[in-house]
Design a protein around this nucleic acid. Structure first.
Lengths: 114, 114
DNA sequence: CTAATATATGAGTAATTACTCATATATTAG
DNA sequence: CTAATATATGAGTAATTACTCATATATTAG
C-alpha cells in the first residue's frame, strides 16, 4: 500500500550513515504531534472540529481561564494548526487544514477502543 | 464522511455543561500523540515502521546511547505503542498496531509539504 | 567459573511546559 | 470622554521531560 522506501534509502543496509528519517523531518513531525499531546489542546481542537470558536467560548466550554486558553492558542498558532479571524473584539479560531482534523479523528478512533 | 455528532451531543447548545469531548478521552488521546511528540521517538517509530529492531540497532541507527533509547522505549512500552520480544540477549521491538503506523505516515505526509 | 555483551533502570539535572497572576491593548457601549 | 468586555502577553512557578551517568541483570562465549 504505502511505499516505505521513501522513508530512507536502504540500498546499503550495512551503512549506519543513512538515517531512517532525517532529523529535520523528525523534528517537524514531533512539533505537529506536540499540538495534540496535551489534553487541553486536544479539547480545543475537538471544539474547533465542529467549527470556528472565539476564545471566550472555548474558555467557557472547557471550563478554563481565558488566559490559559489564550496561551495554548498562541502555541497552536505558532505550530500553524489554527488560524484566526478578528471580528470586533472577538477573535475566532479555526483549524488551519484538514490534516489536523484527520489526525484528530484517527487519534480519537484509537482512543475509543484501546 | 465522518459523523461528528459522536464527539458530543449538542442538542442543547446553550448548556455549557456538555463538554465537546470528555476529559478522560482527551487525556487518552494526548498520551497517544505524546508518543510521537519528540524527535527521538519519531525516529524510533520510523525505524520500526520498516520492521522489528533491537535496542542495539536502534541506538546505532539514531546515533544515540543505548540508555537514552532504552528509556524512550520504556515510555513507548508504557504507552502501548510498541511491543517487544526477547531473543537471547537481544530485545526486539516492534510497533504494537497499525494505528500508530497510520498516524506516523499521516504526520510524515503533513511534514513533507508544510 | 570469568569476561563480554545487550539491555534495563534509578538518581540526578538542565530544559521545557502548562498553568496563574498581573497588566496591557483594542473594541464597543454609554 | 469613561467603563466594560474580549483577548494577548510577560513573569513566575511547580511539574514534567529527555537526557547522562552509574549500576544491575541476563545471556552467551570461553
Amino acid at each position: 500500500m504505502h511505499n516505505l522506501k521513501t522513508l530512507g534509502d536502504h540500498a546499503d543496509p550495512e551503512s549506519e550513515s543513512t538515517p531512517v528519517l532525517d532529523i529535520t523531518t523528525a523534528e517537524a513531525m514531533a512539533l505537529l504531534f506536540k499540538a495534540l499531546s496535551d489534553p487541553t489542546r486536544v479539547r480545543i481542537i475537538a471544539a474547533l472540529v465542529e467549527g470556528e470558536r472565539c476564545v471566550y467560548d472555548l474558555a467557557a466550554t472547557l471550563g478554563m481561564t481565558h488566559s490559559a486558553i489564550s496561551h495554548q492558542l498562541q502555541l497552536l498558532r505558532d505550530l500553524r494548526v489554527v488560524r484566526y479571524r478578528k471580528v470586533g473584539r472577538h477573535v475566532f479560531y479555526a483549524l488551519d487544514d484538514a490534516h489536523i482534523q484527520g489526525l484528530f479523528l484517527q487519534g480519537l478512533e484509537h482512543a475509543r477502543h484501546a
